[in-house]
């Protein structure tokens, strides 16, 4: 047991002060005091408690700087830079050592040069800026439409019957076919790709959200809320949406990298963008993979794409975990 005792004389208080009666207030005693709770404050507290998340965020920041700032700093021009060494046959397919010996030891050549003598490193980051932008924009559009439609779909039984049939139809149209038809009609530009990936892409998300809404919609607390006369919009925004935040964040975390992967896949089968995105780079260098000594041309865009997707995915998953209020205890 702790034998430490407080000596009252140390407090320098008079007996009156020490033994003053405290008024008992019935009203005060009914109040339940709890520590102040701010949702997003707690989310970030839980998120940053894990040291790995800080490391991952730093890596993500570096990746984003290279993706968006680096091409701007070096003034990368997609119409000029890939072809500056086109006529120089000794500049093509160089490994990092020979490239740096030829062009000087600077950051451009640390991954060697590609099939037309361009710097692989510069091309990767320019490609990455296209791929990441595509993924972010598509995820934003699909998540917004998907969550809104999914919420309505889950709430209304009439909409449910109709939308389930629509889903059965749309889910059966091969994605590749839809994208290639749209690309053929409109041209393989960036915004066409965004359109192609979002024109039906939201329905999968909406379906997922619908299932979640149905699960939560009929819980007892919502039933009670409805019995008390809470309007449906208030149930949706105050009772259900907070519950969905972690689901939505987790879903978004899986969506963003999946668009990068999808872009790589489409480019590989020859249906991708016309811009030199990461997928297009991988597709263009796949022949180099089979040639001994040239593998780095293929593996470096693959590695960068993988690192970006992994970091985005893990950060997003951890943020999703942190945004679940049950982890805030």
């Amino acid at each position: 047991m702790n034998e430490k005792k407080i000596d009252l004389s140390d407090l320098n208080m008079t007996d009156e002060e020490l033994f003053a009666p405290v008024n008992h207030d019935d009203l005060e005693s009914e109040k339940i005091t709890a520590p102040r709770y701010s949702y997003w404050h707690s989310v970030f507290r839980v998120f940053f408690k894990k040291k790995i998340n800080i490391v991952l965020l730093a890596v993500l920041a570096v990746l984003l700087v290279f993706t968006y700032v680096y091409p701007a700093i070096i003034g990368y021009d997609a119409a000029v830079d890939p072809y500056i060494n086109l006529m120089d046959s000794t500049a093509k397919h160089l490994n990092p050592q020979t490239a740096m010996a030829k062009f000087g030891s600077n950051i451009h050549w640390i991954l060697g040069s590609g099939a037309s003598g361009q710097s692989t490193f510069d091309a990767i980051w320019y490609g990455s800026s296209i791929s990441v932008s595509l993924a972010l924009i598509c995820a934003l559009i699909n998540m917004t439409i998907g969550v809104i439609v999914g919420a309505v779909w889950g709430f209304s039984k009439k909409v449910d019957v109709f939308m389930t049939e629509v889903y059965n139809v749309i889910a059966n149209i091969p994605y590749i076919l839809l994208i290639s038809v749209i690309v053929l009609i409109m041209s393989a530009s960036f915004w066409t790709m965004v359109f192609a990936l979002t024109v039906t892409g939201w329905i999968g998300i909406a379906y997922f959200i619908r299932t979640q809404v149905i699960i939560i919609r009929d819980r007892e607390y919502n039933l009670a809320s409805r019995c008390l006369g809470t309007p449906i919009t208030r149930i949706a925004s105050k009772n259900i949406l907070p519950f969905m935040t972690s689901v939505i964040v987790t879903l978004a975390a899986a969506e963003i990298p999946s668009y990068i992967s999808y872009e790589v896949f489409l480019s590989y089968i020859g249906m991708g963008l016309s811009d030199m995105s990461l997928g297009k780079l991988i597709e263009a260098s796949q022949n180099a993979m089979q040639t001994p000594g040239w593998e780095i041309e293929f593996w470096s865009p693959v590695a960068v794409a993988s690192i970006i997707t992994i970091v985005l995915y893990v950060v997003g998953q951890n943020l999703g975990d942190a945004s679940d209020p049950r982890t805030h205890m």
Partner: peptide, 14 residues
């Protein structure tokens, strides 16, 4: 699981 889900399928197949 994270590796397979996040990395483009092309990468790990190669």
């Amino acid at each position: 699981i994270v590796f397979i889900t996040a990395v483009p399928s092309l990468a790990y197949i190669f």
